[in-house]
Every structure is written in C-alpha cells, then in structure tokens.
Simulated scan of single mutants.
Amino acid sequence: MYETIQNKLTKLKENKIFEFFVVAVIIISALEIGAKTFELTDTAISLTGVLDIFITVFFLFELTVRFITDNDKKNFFKKGWNIFDSLVVAISLIPINDSEMALLARLVRIFRVLRMVSVVPELRVLINSLIKALPQLGYVVLLMFIIFYIYAAFGSYVFKDINPFLWGDIAISMLTLFRIMTFEDWTDIQYETMEIYPWSWIFYLTFIFFTAFAFLNMVIGIVVNVMEEEHSAMKKEKEPSMTELQNEIRELKSLILTNQNIEKPKS
C-alpha cells in the first residue's frame, strides 16, 4: 500500500505539469504578498486570505510529497533547502489574525518567494556557488576592508576641514569611499578637495583602481570559477560516469555469454 502511494507520488513529483504548477503557485504567492502592501477592499482582503490558505496548504502538500518520495528520509532534513522549505511552511501555518506572532508570520510569508530557488535547479546552483565562494571571498573582503580603512583614515585626517559631512570621521569616510567606489557622483567629491589639494586626484584614482577594478574583478573571478565547478558537479550527478557504463556493459556481456553457453547443445 505504502509503495503504491510512493510510486504514484514519485510520478506526480517528476511530472513537468506539476513542476510548472509549483512554480506558478510560488509566483502567485509573490503577487499576493505584493498586493497586501496596497489598500484593498474588503472583498480583495477576503480573497487574499483564502488564497493565502490555499498556498500554505499546497506548500505543505508539496513538501510532504518530496519527503515521501525521498529515498534517504533519514537525511532529508539535513539538506539546507529542505530545512529552509520546512521552516517557511511551518511558520506559514501560524495564524496571522489576533496573534502575537502575526508580524513574524507576515515576514516569513515574504520569504516564500525564495522557494523558487529550491524548486529551480539552476537557481540552486547559483546560490550554492555563492555560498561555497564565501570562504575565498572572505580574504578578498578582508583585504578590501584594509584598503578602505587606510584610505578612510587618510581622507579623514586630510579632508576633514574641507567637508566634515563627507570626511568627519573614519566611519563617515568609509561611507564616502563606498560612494566613490560605486561611481556615485564621485567627481564632485574629487573636485571639491582638488580646490585645496590639487594632488588629491591621485588619492581617488588609486583607490578606484584597487577597489572597483582589482578587487571587484577578483570577486567576479572567484564566483565564476566556483559556479563552473558546481555546473560540472551537477552534470556528473545527472549523467552516469564512463566507468559505471563500462562495468554495466561488461556485466551484460558476461550474462549474454553465460546464456549462450547454457543454451548451446552438447555435442
């Protein structure tokens, strides 16, 4: 009985129409969350309430299907995306009206949009790549922070009297440098200091070279490299290796030869 239900749910899970329907429900959930930020009529509020119940029940059903069809149920809740989906579904079951947890329930419902990532494999690859790249990115970020700190201290000491609003202390100076790194009207800041210190253009150009050109390109390179590794790993999981295929071919040959020897008439 259980195996029959499991087989039927497995077919349902692997059905493309069901996958598209899951994605459609996630999109509807996102639209429903956005609609609640507007002033709605009583009819629309009732409709969104019913829709919210349907979405929550459907997500619970979809998570149950995934759990039943999973071959390794012991490790089901050890996988990051399964834990995330389970938490979102569990907290979505909290009633919103007249509840101390109402704000938390509303905020968690916003994260239901992220379920699109757990459903679409390509999006999972992107997120996994970013997570796996964090250790390598940490060293780049640390080096970037050191550069920021040095330039911010220099800018605060030298340019503080010119514009205290931008260079008043080291914290404000770091925010100003972030603005310069993102090229947000940075030339206005440069020309202001160049009126007093004509050589200050060197300060800005060297900072932009280190941050916007060198470090950001390092970050992009690390992320792209990890992403390629994730794509390769995903392809290896989907496609059987050549060794496995060769072993299967050998087994088939041995079975065929064995059957031929058995069926061969004795002389």
Score class of each variant (00 low, 15 high):
K132W: 12
A102T: 10
N82A: 07
R124L: 12
S86R: 00
I150G: 08
Y139T: 09
M116F: 05
L104T: 11
L130A: 15
A133V: 13
S92I: 04
A102F: 06
N82D: 04
Y149P: 03
I147P: 01
D98C: 01
N82G: 05
V125Y: 02
D98H: 10
V89M: 04
S92K: 00
S118F: 13
F154H: 10
I127D: 07
M144Q: 13
P135E: 14
L134T: 14
V119Q: 12
R106H: 13
Q136T: 13
F84V: 07
N97C: 01
F145E: 07
V125C: 01
R115Q: 09
Y139H: 14
L142Q: 14
V140G: 04
A102M: 00
L130C: 09
L104S: 09
L143H: 06
A152G: 11
W81C: 03
L107A: 12
P121R: 04
R124F: 04
F111D: 00
V117S: 02
D98Q: 11
I146E: 12
I91A: 02
Y149E: 10
A105N: 10
I94G: 03
I146Y: 13
F148K: 03
F111T: 10
D85Q: 11
V141G: 13
I147V: 07
Y151M: 06
S129R: 01
I146Q: 08
N82H: 08
V120K: 05
W81M: 11
L134R: 09
